[in-house]
Design a protein around this nucleic acid. Structure first.
Lengths: 306, 306
DNA sequence: CTGTTAGCGCTTTCAA
DNA sequence: TTGAAAGCGCTAACAG
């Protein structure tokens, strides 16, 4: 028969017969954070290139939902999973996948007992701290979302502590702000306190953007009065004023790699192993939100010449 | 037999038998624009609630890709389509769907011959223009992405023209900036020109954020020296400094409605019809980027007291 | 009303 | 090398 005729193989029949769906499930906390949206685009591209479809779901950082979604995806008989979980250690969803011996790869999470594609957040933040210190900053605050909701926040905080220690500075200051709401006010009041920091290290770019606003609301100029550094490298950070200084992670690429690894595993009928985990290189983007520490100690009590 | 036992029906077998996959294809220009990401979340939620999975793809405003993706999705035998196309009028992909008599619903697009869930961009922009005029603005520029890439841009521009006409103003000024790159510089030089506008009406929020930066680079204070209004109501606009004035569209809800309509059509085995198209109400968010027109004509040649 | 059966379109196996 | 046939798990139709 002429195959020039528009013949399209029936995916369901194939799946039924081979018990392989050529679909990978993708679980992310949210798409509202451009980091994940960008990564998902990468995933979609790579999956498509490999002849796979994707089934994406979002969990809003809710571990219960994670489990529910994974169950749902299993029902849809996906061939493998790409996940960003809240906490690999305690994740019920991951345990479920391990029990079922389903291939999966974690994105952004980093954990010795799971196959992960991630950046080295800890080192990156430590480097940023060193950079800030060399610019004369002595009072740093880390601004973070809820630690419990994300192992990345934890790692980044660890990096912060590490950086401080290397610089032989003490009194780590952590500002943990609630999720979406009122972050700005919290930061503003922190910045109005007596011994405010000269630099904010933010655990992600979305938070950093809010800090940019908070600083200005507090009457501080960025970067003259206070430096602000983000983490993630979302494209939007390029258009803020001042342009956000941040650590850029290859979001797109992370998606690509995750898919490639997972697909390869699926086709070879083996599980991705933790030992093959990939660390992606981060990159510092100078931006404009970060500068020399103000000459005077950043307080009203003792103005002081250079 | 005990159904308490973990029985999970096999989706492929069911699809094969019933020739219904319970999957809807979702086509969007990009996920990097939070508007679409938010909408996709709405779609995902509603689809899940209705027992459907989604298959999302992005086209990057490329009509050729639109067609290719739709073909791909047909191959995956999705039951229906949710699409944001560049231009419904000329869309090859839509023609293909019509020929195949596949149920589909357009999101954000607005066209009399297609089933659409959209906002009334035209009216909304005209209202904004009226608002600006009542604040004393007489020189407005519309900043838009490539008109050809999106019917929304066209409608918004139409609204702009309409608004100007109602206010009996002439000399519509349009600044069409290239896609991602260099938008900022283009705007900066526009703002440095002799008779610069006192207000920028942006065809979307992402562009408005760039204008915020451009204005400041041009040495203008927002909103004292220039007002800037966006369109879309992305969450990020709440955290800029000044907070973005914009028209908020119910992105989440648009996704919900689209899914509900589509699913209903699928289950009743009929096609969504253009006549049932839904117009969603927009909402004005005052923000902080918009104010009274500067007392003096906005130029260096004649400073002038209030 | 309950239980049995044919067949959806594909792949894989086995016979010719 | 090519071709026929079985069967994946489900649902719809039909018989008991």
């Amino acid at each position: 028969m002429a195959k020039t005729l528009g013949y399209v193989p029936n995916a369901s029949a194939r799946t039924l017969r081979t018990s392989r769906s050529r679909v990978v499930g993708v679980l992310m906390p949210t798409l509202t954070n451009p980091v994940f949206a960008e990564c998902l685009e990468g995933v979609a591209e790579a999956a498509h290139a490999a002849g796979y479809a994707i089934l994406p779901m979002t969990t809003h950082y809710d571990a219960t939902l994670e489990t529910r979604c994974v169950t749902l995806m299993q029902g849809a008989s996906v061939d493998g999973f790409l996940l960003v979980v809240s906490n690999p250690d305690s994740s019920q969803a991951l345990r479920q996948l391990q029990r079922a011996r389903k291939p999966y790869v974690l994105l952004y999470n980093r954990h010795p007992k799971h196959p992960c594609v991630s950046g080295d957040s800890e080192t990156a933040v430590a480097e940023v701290v060193a950079r800030l210190v060399s610019l004369g900053h002595r009072r740093l605050t880390m601004v973070s979302g809820p630690m419990s909701a994300s192992d990345r926040a934890q790692q980044r905080y660890k990096g912060f502590l590490h950086g401080l220690k290397l610089a032989q500075m003490k009194g780590p200051c952590l500002l943990e702000v609630p999720f979406m709401e009122s972050a700005v006010e919290t930061v503003v009041s922190h910045l109005k306190s007596d011994k405010r920091p000269t630099a904010l290290v933010c655990s992600n770019d979305l938070l950093a953007l809010r800090c940019l606003r908070a600083a200005q609301l507090a009457g501080l100029r960025v970067p003259q009065d206070i430096s602000i550094v983000g983490f993630d490298g979302i494209t939007l950070g390029l258009d803020t004023m001042p342009m956000l200084t941040t650590i850029v992670q290859p979001n797109h690429e992370a998606g690509h790699l995750g898919v490639q690894w997972l697909v390869q595993a699926i086709e070879q009928r083996k599980l991705p192993t933790p030992s093959e985990s990939v660390l992606l290189a981060h990159q510092f983007r100078a931006g404009e939100s970060c500068g020399q520490a103000p000459a005077a100690y950043p307080s009203r009590d003792q103005p002081q010449a250079r």
